[in-house]
Nucleic acid binder design. Structure first.
Lengths: 228, 228
DNA sequence: ATGTGGATTTGAACATGTTCAACTTTCAGC
DNA sequence: GCTGAAAGTTGAACATGTTCAAATCCACAT
């Protein structure tokens, strides 16, 4: 199950070719319809070779995930360097997620369910995928910290992680969305990003102090205490 | 893929026996480790016969889900007929979920991921599992309506569905919980049920009127408009 | 040039979910 | 009790993810 790193020029070529074929096929046919044999065949390599570099079909999905993350990060870079308004930054970032993922809409369901499986090494709550998750959370930290919004420290601490979770929720909604141009998802994004920013500002109200403290305390406790 | 209903005494016996064996094996060995062949073998029936009554292994999970739901409903019946305080009813109900599911903790991860797959017929957002989901949502409607809490109509309308979602979240947390006696999950339940009840009462604050309206409108829109 | 050891590649073999056409059993109507 | 159609049963066959021991390749030291 160890992830084999190529140690030869030939190996690098093979690994890259297999990954390429896999990404193409995932997009063309979806996750289930893409067989390990078809990946090997398109690569021009034997079945066993694929398993030399990717311990399982799921691990190919992890690369797929990394791939879309990089596309996403590149897509929002201009926005993040230009815009200062938090709501606008957040809206643009989340919109970019679904736009970036659009070519993979048909595949996304299987992938989502694969990743959600706690037994999967790809589960973002721990395991191989953790570094990549941390990268995504960091991206949301940038979305927040690069804005001109003044966020109370206790909220700012937990906000990126919450926004990552929120992004997951939007993606799950998007998977089910069959509306033309995925307009419904975009509507939901616009409405919810606005709501989030508004609720953050409301969190300063004295009546909400108690609940805010409890909620943030709970989240912090969950994140920091091991196992669970 | 049609779900075959037994039309013979012999058929009923077979179906019941297969289901029994499956439920036992799921508990004993987990979902993946239980093969269709092992189910057939324990039942004393051929492999093909299992597929006569259950179109797929996943459909056996649906029965498993129904089974635990019935255990759960039975477990909380006394509480619901006795207790009037909403927080207590809610806490008891959610606690009972994880207590009821405790024997299946090891299996739950696979099952959760199976069910979460939008492509699965078992996905609760549509398909074969919808009737069962509606039953569970109804249970939460009873939890709310049988309490002495006065809930504004717009909230009351959406609350049961939200509580069902909340229960899903708790279950997902519980799957990861490795603490002795699953104490962490119970702590989180106590804290969150309390928070929920408190937030419902806060929703009447004038400052929150706008957000409340928007949130409920959004949820309603999502639920009622088809597809998505 | 040649041998060596590790990296890479191979393809057969295995396990398991699923399908299906042929076979057997059941039972309602006579 | 007979009969024939419907219901139930069977096991072989298929597709696909995965494993693994053996074969091949290749860079490098000698």
């Amino acid at each position: 199950m160890a992830i084999e790193v190529p140690k030869t020029r030939r190996g690098e070529t093979s690994r890259a070719a297999i990954l390429n074929a896999a990404l193409d096929l995932f997009q063309e046919r979806g996750y289930e319809a893409t067989t390990m044999r078809s990946i090997a065949e398109r690569t021009g390599v034997s079945l066993g070779s694929s398993y030399h570099y990717f311990p399982s079909k799921e691990h190919l999905v992890l690369e797929f995930y990394r791939h879309t993350h990089e596309l996403h990060a590149a897509a929002i870079a201009p926005l993040l360097s230009r815009e200062k308004d938090l709501a606008t930054r957040l809206r643009g970032t989340i919109r970019a997620v679904v736009v970036t993922c659009e070519p993979f809409h048909a595949v996304a369901g299987s992938i989502f369910s694969t990743v959600a499986n706690p037994a999967s090494p790809l589960n973002p709550f721990g395991g191989v995928a953790k570094p990549l998750r941390d990268e995504v959370v960091q991206l949301y930290a940038d979305v927040v910290s690069g804005s001109d919004a003044r966020i109370p420290a206790d909220i700012a601490e937990m906000l990126p992680l919450m926004l990552w979770l929120y992004q997951m929720g939007i993606l799950y909604f998007w998977i089910f969305d069959r509306s033309p141009g995925r307009l419904r998802t975009l509507e939901v994004i616009d409405e919810t990003t606005d709501l989030i920013v508004r609720l953050i500002s409301l969190a300063n109200l004295p009546v909400l102090r108690g609940s805010r403290k409890r909620i943030l305390g709970l989240i912090k406790d969950i994140v920091e205490r091991p196992q669970g």
